[in-house]
Design a protein around this nucleic acid. Structure first.
Length: 790
DNA sequence: ACTCGTAGCCTTTTT
DNA sequence: GGCTACGAGT
């Protein structure tokens, strides 16, 4: 395609983004601004200008997004050699290639959360460190936290201020050693190893900077420090970096994502070109107005516009249900009615919620109506027991040093190697610095075990040897041999508790085989990729995400979390359970930064909708066993209610689907508003403005809650807390109190001490060393949410 | 060594 | 409500 054609149909800023190739770029792209289109056209344009596809790397958040780009690129210019994939995928390739630099074997295994936790537990056990009631999962969290910030065991141990984290600093090196001994990495290691490798090997860094001349990064607002460093290292000599992102859609702060990375670009690349993509082509003005009103409430935010380009459409509905069950059932009914009376396919509907737990009632409602649906997330396919068992064998074949995999499969299905035996073998292996499998191999000649156990262990070793013979063959034959030799299907049939279980388990195994078959096929067809099918398979298993499995072509309703919905769009969106303690989540309410992230989450949800949006909450919702009354989310108060269609369905649905039992339908709105089903199906909007009412009365906020709310507002106005940040008038902040040696806290980085200051007034900048991480960060007082302590 | 039962646990979001 | 870890019985 000639390069001029690549600009067709693009607006001015999109064209600018496509045509400006060299140098650092930041594309601030709001939702629905045609970002993916711009990136793919940009790549195509680059190639049309003579840049070699092999010099280009495009990094995305999910494999799904990478696949979509690949597909569009194929349409534009046909198959190319551009590297498109996820950050993690990219790093795994680099690590395989240069594994010896980080002390890993080429065939290192990648651990999922379960394996990582098992490994950590073992490290704790072997190191004889007393945990004194600290749960291991908490340690895992902390270690992950540090890894995302590139804090190595050595750095953490050297930090004298880490006393509060003493246990973590003690365990961390043992854990890292255990991983290395197994020849394995956890998720966070993939990024950390890569970042450190680039940082510590100047020659390699230079070589790769040269090799990957053009870097494009999608969802840049969700990158963490490790990813930031990786990018930085690869864009020194050839600073051709195109970062795309939207700070308003940053929803992974809890995973170490650092919004600051966006701001840091300006600091790192003085000639950064910023291109704003603000025209929204996805949603109706009604939907965008809602999103805009909401996000304005975020204080730590740079102003950005949402410019509608579509004609007016339907009003957004806010629906109040008596119970969570009524919510699920009614939405299912609506979808049925809608698909009957219009030509909407089921794939037009997306139902979004904050936590996975909210999917259950919806699933039940769908099943009852025989509505086909796809559930994204929840329990992951690869984390299912039967799948993990099988993969365990493959992992052990790939890397015989992987003791975690070995322990997983050594007695599955049961073959007479019990706990005691495994413990003896482990101790022996530990003493003699060998892997568990090696220990099994020589257990017989060492007279380590009873005669019965010796035979069982010998048989296990022979089994692994036979599987090893299949390693170079096709994946399917390796898996099939494993299934046959272990009589795994028989074992699964016995352990299934119900017929349905049995069927599911069998189907899962079949699905895994089908995937293996697919990979075997790719190997024959594609001579470009030299990786073995085993390697590909293990990468797929480790790095494929739930969203990657999303099918957009199938005629089914989609159910997923708000996080999973990022980057997607649906003509009709239902946003459910918009209730206090759910969205915003109870655990995020205390921290202003986290609260803003919750607001962004709702913003992401709203902006997924193209034509129609219904936001809903229920007055009562079951939590586990008990039921609790649902308080409408405080975010709902921030929406422009005059523009919305508010429906209270408590009266007409109250008597049905009563899952909590104690809904009091007393003095409600039955005469003020009765919903008309034809409005839903026919697509005609009736103006109910005169029927809407004020939230503070209608949503029955408890008086205490209202009081709190007013109090907080008042506090914010008077600036009674010593927090910096754009929200307060400059004169009210005692800027000069931020001087060297003063203790401060930051909502994200924790507590720290000012080590350096410069400038005066709101322009004052301070450098702070944080005790949690030992890292030094510099902030402009007028922008950073720093708080004086003590 | 294995199977079954139960008490106690947690329950945000995920590459 | 659902899963895991642990313990008692076979």
């Amino acid at each position: 395609m000639p390069s001029q054609d690549l600009l067709n149909g693009l607006n001015a800023s999109q064209q600018a983004a496509v045509q400006s190739i060299d140098g650092p770029h930041l594309m601030l792209a709001g939702p629905g601004s045609g970002k993916t289109r711009v990136i793919t056209h940009r790549i195509a344009y680059m190639i049309s200008q003579g840049i070699s596809p092999r010099d280009i790397v495009g990094l995305t958040f999910t494999n799904k997004a990478a696949g979509e780009m690949r597909r569009r690129l194929d349409v534009l210019i046909g198959p190319t050699d551009v590297w498109l994939g996820t950050f993690h995928g990219f790093c795994v390739r680099l690590l395989r290639r240069y594994s010896q630099l980080v002390g890993l074997p080429v065939n290192f295994n990648i651990y999922d959360v379960d394996d990582s936790l098992a490994c950590l537990k073992q490290a704790v056990k072997d190191s004889n460190i007393d945990l004194s009631h600290t749960p291991v999962s908490r340690l895992a969290q902390r270690i992950s936290f540090y890894k995302n910030r590139l804090v190595t065991p050595e750095v953490l141990q050297a930090d004298p201020r880490g006393s509060s984290e003493y246990q973590v600093s003690q365990i961390y090196p043992h854990y890292q050693q255990a991983l290395l001994a197994c020849g394995a990495v956890d998720f966070d290691d993939i990024l950390m190893h890569t970042a450190l490798m680039l940082r510590e090997h100047a020659e390699l860094r230079e070589q790769l900077d040269e090799r990957f001349r053009y870097m494009l990064v999608d969802e840049y607002q969700d990158t963490n420090l490790a990813q930031y460093v990786i990018l930085r290292q690869l864009c020194v000599d050839h600073p051709n970096l195109a970062a795309t992102g939207d700070p308003d859609q940053s929803i992974y702060g809890w995973r170490g994502a650092n919004t600051q990375n966006v701001a840091n670009l300006e600091r790192d690349y003085p000639n950064l070109r910023i291109i704003r993509l603000e025209d929204n082509y996805r949603s109706t003005p009604e939907i965008l107005s809602l999103a805009d009103c909401l996000i304005q409430n975020n204080q730590y935010r740079k102003h950005k516009q949402l410019v509608p380009s579509r004609p007016a459409g339907h009003k957004v509905r806010l629906t109040i249900y008596p119970t969570a069950r009524a919510e699920a059932e009614d939405i299912a009914d609506q979808i049925v009615a809608w698909t009957k009376s219009t030509d909407h396919p089921l794939s037009d509907f997306g139902i979004l919620y904050r936590t996975n737990a909210q999917s259950r009632l919806l699933e039940q409602a769908m099943v009852r109506r025989q509505l086909p649906y796809q559930l994204i997330g929840g329990f992951r396919f690869y984390l299912r027991k039967e799948i993990k068992d099988l993969i365990g064998y493959v992992l052990l074949v790939n890397n015989p040093n992987d003791d975690i995999a070995c322990q997983r499969v050594i007695n599955v299905p049961p073959r007479g190697i019990g706990k005691q035996t495994v413990e003896k073998l482990r101790r022996f292996a530990h003493e003699h610095q060998m892997s568990l499998l090696e220990a099994c191999r020589i257990a017989g000649s060492e007279k380590l075990l009873s005669s019965r156990a010796t035979i069982a262990v010998r048989d296990f070793v022979r089994l692994m040897d036979r599987l090893n013979d299949q390693a170079s063959g096709s994946l399917v034959s390796l898996l099939q041999t494993t299934l046959d030799e272990t009589r795994y299907r028989e074992f699964v049939e016995k352990s299934a508790r119900s017929d349905q279980d049995q069927l599911d388990l069998g189907q899962n195994i079949d699905e895994l085989l089908a995937e293996a078959h697919e990979i075997d096929g790719e190997i024959d067809g594609d001579t470009h990729d030299s990786r073995s099918s085993l390697e590909r398979f293990l990468e797929l298993v480790a790095l494929q995400s739930d969203v990657d499995k999303l099918k957009t072509d199938r005629n089914v309703v989609t159910l997923m979390t708000l996080h999973a919905a990022k980057g997607l769009e649906f003509p009709c969106v239902y946003l459910i359970a918009v209730e206090e303690n759910i969205l915003p989540h109870a655990r995020s309410k205390d921290d202003p930064m986290q609260l803003e992230e919750e607001r962004r989450l709702l913003f992401v949800g709203i902006t997924r909708a193209k034509d129609r949006l219904q936001v809903s909450y229920a007055r009562s919702r079951g939590f586990g066993g008990s039921s609790e009354s649902g308080i409408p989310s405080s975010f709902l108060m921030e929406l422009p209610r005059r523009e919305m269609l508010v429906q209270d369905r408590c009266d007409d649905l109250g008597s049905d689907y009563n899952d909590a039992g104690n809904y009091d339908a007393g003095e409600d709105f039955s005469d003020q508003f009765s919903p008309d089903p034809s409005d839903l199906a026919g697509g005609e909007t009736i103006d109910h403005d005169d029927l809407t009412f004020d939230y503070d009365d209608s949503c029955q906020l408890p008086p205490e809650e209202l009081k709190q709310r007013r109090l907080k507002k008042a506090q914010r106005r008077t600036g009674s807390s010593l927090t910096t940040g754009a929200s307060l008038a400059d004169s009210q902040i005692p800027w000069e109190k931020f001087r060297q040696g003063v203790h401060v806290s930051h909502p994200l980085w924790g507590n720290g001490q000012i080590v350096q200051v410069s400038g005066h007034g709101p322009k004052r900048a301070v450098s702070v060393v944080f005790s949690d991480t030992g890292l030094e960060r510099t902030f402009r007082l007028s922008h950073a949410p720093l708080r004086l302590e003590g």
